[in-house]
Write a protein that binds this DNA or RNA. Structure first.
Lengths: 113, 113
DNA sequence: CCTGTTAATCGTAGATATACGATAAAGCAT
DNA sequence: ATGCTTTATCGTATATCTACGATTAACAGG
C-alpha cells in the first residue's frame, strides 16, 4: 500500500542506552551470513543485491531478510538505481560497534583500586 | 552424573573461520542482559554469581542461562570458590571481538581500485 | 547426619529467528 | 500494454531464544 522504496536508514533511536544499542548491533552481526554480507560490501565499496545473492548459498528471499536485519541496524544502506538496488555498508556504524565495545573494558581511569 | 564443575572455558574451536567466530561472539553480545553482565564483571574485576543476579531484574535461572551463553562464547570464566562461584570476564576474548571487527573494514592495502 | 545456601539444570510456554517457495511491486525493454 | 528482471514481502515450517518456577547437586555449618 504505502509507496515506500527502501527507507534511508532509520536513525537508530537515539533514546536507547549504550547496552541496548550495542546488543542491537551485536545481534545484527550474530549470524555468519550477515558477517559475510558486510565483509562483501566493505571489500567492494558498493554493489547490487543480486551480487550478494550469488555470493551466498542461500535463497534470494533469505538474503533479502538478512539485508533487512542489517538495514534496520543501520549497518547498511540501499539506494535504488534503476532496476537494481545498490547496497553499501555504513562504515561509521561499523566503527560505532568498536566504540561501544571500548566502553566495556574501559576502566574508569583512576577509579580502580 | 558426570562430576563436572564449571569447565575452564572451551578453547572455542580453532577450526572455525573468522566469520563464524565473529558471529558467535556477536551473538553472545546480542542481548542487553548479557552486555550488562559483562560490563558488571569488567567494572568489578571479579564477583559472585549471586551479585549478578541481584544486579539484574531477572530470575536466578535466567541469569544462569545468560552466564552459560557468555561462558560458552569464552567471554567469561567461572571458578568455584567454596559455596560461591567467582565469575570473571576474559578481557582478551572481549578484545578479540575488536580484532575481528577490524578485519571487516580492513581494505586489503593497495588492492582497491 | 540434617539444614540452609548457592548455582546449575530441567521442563515448559511463548516469542523470535531462519529458511524456503510463492507472490507482489516497480522499473526497463520491446 | 506485455513481458522480463530485480528485489521486497507474504505465508509457513522448523528451530532457537528467553523467561520462569521447580528441581538437583554440591558445599558449609551445626
Amino acid at each position: 500500500m504505502t509507496p515506500r522504496a527502501c527507507p534511508p536508514t532509520p536513525p537508530v533511536d537515539p533514546a536507547t542506552d549504550p547496552d541496548e544499542e550495542l546488543s542491537r548491533l551485536a545481534a545484527a552481526l550474530g549470524h555468519p551470513a550477515r558477517i559475510r554480507i558486510l565483509r562483501f560490501l566493505l571489500e567492494r565499496r558498493e554493489c547490487f543485491a543480486g551480487a550478494i545473492v550469488d555470493h551466498l548459498p542461500l535463497a534470494q528471499s533469505t538474503v533479502s531478510q538478512h539485508l533487512k536485519v542489517l538495514r534496520e541496524a543501520g549497518l547498511i544502506r540501499g539506494e535504488v538505481d534503476g532496476l537494481h538496488i545498490c547496497y553499501c555498508a555504513d562504515e561509521e556504524r561499523v566503527h560505532r560497534i568498536g566504540e561501544l565495545l571500548q566502553t566495556l573494558n574501559a576502566v574508569p581511569a583512576g577509579s580502580e583500586r
